[in-house]
Design a protein around this nucleic acid. Structure first.
Length: 465
RNA sequence: GCCCGGGUGGUGUAAUGGUUAGCACGGAAGUUUGUGGAACUUUAAGUUUGAGUUCGACUCUCAGCCCGGGUACCA
């Protein structure tokens, strides 16, 4: 045993193999999501995994500390290229590049994996699937954004969530921007303030946590210290009183900044259109939704699940938003010669999967194959004939692939595999033109076998599956 | 990135400075060449890595690696 030379199988952290039930559920979700996107009038788009680094990197958050650290970047000998970090930036590039060919309002969906080079955990992976819908072009924002809300709600319901199991939180960044303007908060602090506001709904934060972040510093459960924004008492208390407001009318009366008022008006218009549809109950205003700072500049949306999720040790964890997005007016105009606004949402399919796989609400059609046992190698041809009949009739089926193994072994295999039925035929059956079926899911100890004449094969099997 | 905790066969665990690292499940082979999900027998497979302390390290110390959690960031 020279084990020094042997490889140890493993994956880089944050990457996951997926198989069995989870994968089947994922495929099911993807199918539902895609057909719902199509139903809402979106066209498919697929872009390569790699983009030219500048096209993705130039609008990363203007955060001093880690500019490009979250993207996987490579040099192909000529250029720096990066794995796509999301689906919006490839879309922006694509639209800028193919502007002439596209309709004036371009609705596209993309369901692809994205890559993030960051710490994993809590249903956060370094490669994960996003299902993204965007509307690009000059549109009535209220209509476009309402369409997105409806799309999210109906998709999640189609995926198997109940109406009360999720909440779509919407806001408009102009509201918070106006507030920050009013309070004359210095530019350097604005990012921190917005991020602090965004954390209100995070478990373990609440008003107290946000206040600490607005002022000097916050010490978390592990003892690590996060520096705060160092606001004045007046600034901090104004923001805190803003955070207490849940009602659009109350906000409208108390915060008169023009930009804030504009944001409020846009939200009102959104709800007006939402009321024409079926999902307005699922959508709630939440003025603390601020989201990423790089380019959102109006409507923003975040969808949270209303039930708890646990990790495989049974510990309750917060998986965050399963679906988020917003309006971006400058994302595409970064490119030469185009100035087109857009708005979109992205479903975090793997997070949704993580949550859905814990609530057993979805009926899965995971039909394991019928197994044709090879009892006597002499009759191999006959076994393949049976197999052919089954497959012609769309019955998932397989033949046991090692004809040297005895029947007991074959059944052990079939049992572990979860096969519902075994076809067991030997000399006796073939002589009389009969077939024997064994119901592998039957009660132990009972006689689970039937023998019948060959022509009835398909009908008999269909009684069981 | 930062903070905290943890790493013993594939999985779950025992041994806490001292013989050959024990047990269970799972795997493989057999008892059983026409009957699985039971039993029995056999078998393969493990101390995360490196340095240090020690007569002696799975056990103690330091560092790396990996895993988990918190936090930060998240288009």
């Amino acid at each position: 045993m020279n084990k020094e030379n042997k490889l140890i199988p493993g994956l880089p952290s944050g990457f996951e193999d997926r198989w069995n039930k989870t994968l089947i559920l994922k495929k099911r979700l993807l199918k539902v999501i895609e057909s719902n996107f199509i139903k809402y009038g979106f066209d498919p788009l697929e872009t390569p995994s790699f983009e030219i680094a500048e096209n993705i990197g130039s609008f990363l958050a203007e955060d001093d500390s880690n500019p490009m650290s979250d993207v996987f970047s490579f040099n192909d000998g000529e250029k720096n290229i990066t794995l796509r970090y999301d689906l919006s930036s490839p879309l922006a590039r694509f639209v800028a590049q193919n502007n002439q060919e596209l309709p004036s309002i371009y609705k596209r969906y993309a369901i692809q994996n994205v890559f993030r080079n960051e710490k994993s955990g809590n249903a956060r992976f370094r490669e994960f699937t996003q299902a993204d819908c965007d509307i690009v072009g000059k549109v009535n924002p209220a209509q476009a954004n309402a369409e997105l809300c409806n799309l999210v709600a109906s998709t999640l319901i189609e995926c198997g969530l109940k109406k009360d199991q999720f909440t779509i939180n919407v806001s408009n960044r102009k509201i918070v921007q106006g507030l920050i303007e009013d309070l004359k908060i210095e530019k350097e602090k604005q990012i921190k303030v917005m991020r602090a506001i965004d954390k209100l709904d995070k478990p373990g934060f609440g008003l107290k946590g946000v206040e600490e972040l607005l002022r000097k510093e916050r010490k978390d459960r592990s003892g690590a210290i996060t520096k705060g924004a160092n606001l004045s008492d007046d600034q901090a208390s104004k923001i805190l009183s803003f955070l207490r407001i849940k009602d659009l009318k109350e906000l409208k009366e108390n915060f008169k900044n023009p930009l804030t008022q504009e944001g409020i008006k846009e939200l009102e218009e959104l709800f007006e259109v939402l009321n024409f549809g079926n999902y307005s109950d699922q959508v709630k205003t939440n003025f603390t939704i601020v989201r990423g700072l790089a380019y959102y500049d109006g409507f923003c949306i975040e969808t949270n699940l209303n039930f708890k999720t646990t990790n495989n040790e049974g510990k309750e964890i917060d998986i965050g938003s399963v679906c988020s997005g917003g309006q971006y007016n400058k994302l595409i105009s970064r490119f030469k010669g185009v100035d087109i606004p857009g708005t979109g949402v992205s479903i975090g399919v793997d997070r949704l999967l993580f949550a859905m796989s814990q609530i057993n609400q979805v009926q899965l059609d995971d039909q394991k194959p019928v197994i044709v046992c090879v009892m006597d190698e002499k009759y191999l041809k006959n076994y393949y004939e049976i197999l052919e009949v089954l497959r012609k009739n769309n019955i998932n089926s397989e033949i046991f692939l090692d004809s040297k193994k005895n029947l007991g072994k074959q059944l052990t295999y079939a049992n572990k595999r979860g096969c519902p039925i075994a076809v067991i035929c030997g000399e006796n059956e073939f002589k009389d033109n009969k077939i024997t079926l064994k119901n592998l899911l039957g009660i132990k100890g009972e006689d689970n076998q039937i023998t019948f004449s060959k022509e009835n094969l398909v009908n008999e099997i269909k009684k069981f599956i």
